[in-house]
Design a protein around this nucleic acid. Structure first.
Lengths: 200, 200
DNA sequence: GTCTATAAGGTGATAGAC
DNA sequence: GTCTATCACCTTATAGAC
């Protein structure tokens, strides 16, 4: 069942979990931001954990239209799509003055003893992201060496995004992120050069 | 000023922050684990934040003897020292059944509005780690291309460590970490091959 | 430096009228 | 579905004797 109130709660919780984290966001924070009252919130969500689950489901269901469609609307080249996606996170870091990191990555490290449902939803969010990047690498076809493990490389790219955000936020310096992306660029260039050599 | 009680508190807090996170660790948790009473704890640490600062200073001051000396005691080759260091985190993940991630990385993402002292200490812990890896890359000398930015590459390696741990913990599957390290290995191999070609 | 007792406020969650 | 009122608990932190 869906309703405007329910949706409003999810979106407020999403924003607050993103910026403050799950533990540091109180139910009172969400109530005051939404102008919803406690009774309504608990009508939709039996507990705070259930709200977290709903937020993670919302991310999971929206990756295509909220993230990928936006990042890729002007980019067709599969390799450049990867960098366009990464650049989306860069813009988010800069425009939020480092308040917004990766919402999933934050939760992944914060939730130490997650109930299985939460952990699996975080994992699913990661693997959907990895699948999308893997598809780019598959679409790059013979530009990469034939024996390149494209899934492993896609996981590697998620790792770089997460680690790059972590370092950039900690130092409050986007150059950390940029240098990480540059090294990734070097790596892909080296792979593509290898592939060219194999053909020649 | 230092005392056995103070040290006992720091070590308990370190372990608890590591496993449960900072917010989720209560003062009562620390008191019950140490058998110290509230009055003593607040005698040494005016507030919970000050305890966090002390823990981060403890990490910062111990990186050489608690982390590097151990990881490198049987390894001299500078490139292999990097993989030995990374393997230390791998062992930690496996032996703790994914309870222990990177203590600094966890805090880096959990603390959203850190007071400046906390953020700077986290940054210092990161940069000390990066400096150590950078030194390995410098020591690798001509095995890497002359124009390789060794600082940027060291930052990249920290990123991979952090992102690899994040993914492995989320999926509760060490293979995620291993595949990340394998791609890094490929990257360094490609760089070393480039360097050889430049000489020839 | 350590102990006991306790304060002051925030937390997630509930009851029950409407 | 929404509102008000409120509970029971846990949190960080303090007071003051020893």
């Amino acid at each position: 069942m869906n309703s405007a109130t329910r949706q409003k709660i999810i979106e407020a919780a999403m924003e607050l979990f993103w910026v403050k984290g799950f533990q540091s966001t109180s139910i009172a924070d969400i109530l005051s931001r939404t102008q919803v009252h406690s009774g309504s919130l608990y009508h939709f969500f039996p507990g705070k954990q259930d709200l977290l689950v709903a937020v993670l489901e919302y991310y999971r269901d929206g990756i295509e239209e909220n993230l990928l469609a936006y990042a890729w609307k002007d980019v067709d080249d599969p390799i450049e799509r990867i960098f366009a996606l990464l650049n989306g996170y860069r813009i988010m870091l800069v425009t939020s003055d480092f308040a917004h990191g990766c919402p999933i990555g934050n939760l992944a490290l914060e939730i130490s003893e997650p109930d299985p449902k939460v952990r699996e939803l975080i994992a699913k969010n990661f693997s959907n992201w990895v699948d999308a990047v893997e598809q780019c690498l598959v679409d790059a076809g013979p530009r990469l060496p034939a024996d390149t493990d494209r899934k492993a490389l896609a996981e590697f790219i998620l790792t770089i995004m997460e680690g790059g955000i972590m370092q950039a936020r900690t130092h409050r310096d986007i150059a950390l992120f940029d240098r990480n992306i540059e090294v990734l660029r070097t790596h892909l260039d080296l792979l593509m050069r290898e592939a060219e050599r194999a053909i020649a």
